[in-house]
Computed example of a mutant assay.
Amino acid sequence: MTVAVEPQSPRQKLNDREDVARRLLASAARKSYDPLIEVDWEAPVDHSTLYGMTPEWCSLYGTELWDSMTQEQRITLTEHEAASISATGIWFEIILMQMLIRDAYKQDPASPHFQFALTEIADECRHSTMFAKAAEHFGIPNYRRPWWVELLTRPFKALASGSLAFGGTLAAEEILDMMQRDFMKDDRVQPITRTVSRIHVLEEARHIRFAREETKRIAAELNPVRRAMTRLTLAITVYMVVFCLVNPKVYEAAGLDRREAVRAARRNTFYNDRKRNGCAKTIEFLDECGLVGGPGAWLLRRGSIM
């Protein structure tokens, strides 16, 4: 027997959105962390036995090149890849904050939706500071994106809104989340990396829920033309985030030949499968929202994202 479900009215949708925001505000009041206090920034760094991140997430893990490396090189490489991932996180969180501010600018300040948007912006400010201090603590330089990535993402950060903004946010945040859930539980990893990852995972759970709800709500109202444009732009955004996770300069820091290491990483089926499996839930959700398809799907497959 099929039960007919009446579509929600605009007022019902608005109430649902505000209810979600209200619950997320309550969660933020119960569980928020100040990394300047929660992280022991004076803790010594063990460069001889502990990795900078879970080694299985290293772009060279499982390759012949990884097998030929010394333990010191492996530790150095994981430290620098962790710093590169954090730099990418800072970059996209700054973009995210700009999009959230634009969204909040149009909202009613008395609404829970507006108030949680500001709460998330405050969280992201702390997270970016936390990632920056972690890189400073390990004495690792800032790994910037290629100039062409910076150029191509300027229109996105200046203009992105709606399902494109929240869909892009969701994909970028969940990519970091899937890695850090392993980092925070791994006893082989530096204590500061584990603490930073734990704080980020716990607080990002709220941000991911917020982004999923907004993506689903806005995507349902897209017309065919806007949906096709969103699919392509979203795929480009996700591809760039994944592409920028590991700056090729990290290989030189570990004493490796840069070109040889880049080739090995690109062909590393273990790493590519790990990325693909980690992104599976995000891609499945975006597909359910009608935001995966067309030329963008080819780009996602090329980036080992789906």
Score class of each variant (00 low, 15 high):
97 M>H: 01
97 M>E: 02
100 L>M: 10
101 I>Q: 09
102 R>G: 05
102 R>S: 06
103 D>E: 11
103 D>M: 07
104 A>W: 09
104 A>N: 12
104 A>Q: 11
105 Y>T: 15
107 Q>M: 12
107 Q>L: 10
109 P>Q: 06
110 A>K: 15
112 P>Q: 10
113 H>D: 07
115 Q>R: 14
116 F>K: 06
116 F>V: 14
117 A>W: 02
117 A>P: 03
118 L>G: 02
120 E>Q: 03
120 E>P: 00
121 I>W: 07
122 A>D: 11
122 A>T: 07
123 D>L: 03
123 D>N: 13
125 C>F: 12
126 R>F: 06
127 H>W: 07
127 H>A: 05
128 S>N: 12
129 T>W: 08
130 M>A: 11
132 A>N: 09
132 A>Y: 11
133 K>I: 01
134 A>C: 12
136 E>K: 14
138 F>P: 05
139 G>K: 15
141 P>M: 11
142 N>G: 09
144 R>S: 09
144 R>K: 12
146 P>N: 11
147 W>V: 06
148 W>E: 14
149 V>Y: 04
152 L>V: 10
152 L>C: 08
153 T>L: 12
157 K>H: 09
159 L>G: 09
159 L>D: 09
159 L>K: 07
161 S>F: 02
161 S>V: 04
162 G>R: 00
163 S>I: 05
164 L>W: 01
164 L>Y: 00
165 A>D: 00
165 A>Q: 01
168 G>W: 00
169 T>R: 01
170 L>K: 00
171 A>I: 12
174 E>H: 13
174 E>M: 08
175 I>W: 00
177 D>H: 05
178 M>E: 01
178 M>N: 01
180 Q>D: 02
180 Q>F: 04
181 R>M: 06
181 R>Q: 13
182 D>E: 15
182 D>C: 14
182 D>R: 11
183 F>A: 03
185 K>L: 13
186 D>M: 00
187 D>K: 15
187 D>F: 14
189 V>K: 01
189 V>T: 03
189 V>M: 04
190 Q>S: 14
190 Q>T: 15
191 P>K: 10
192 I>S: 04
195 T>F: 06
201 V>T: 03
201 V>H: 03
202 L>P: 01
202 L>N: 06
206 R>C: 10
206 R>E: 05
207 H>I: 07
208 I>D: 00
209 R>P: 04
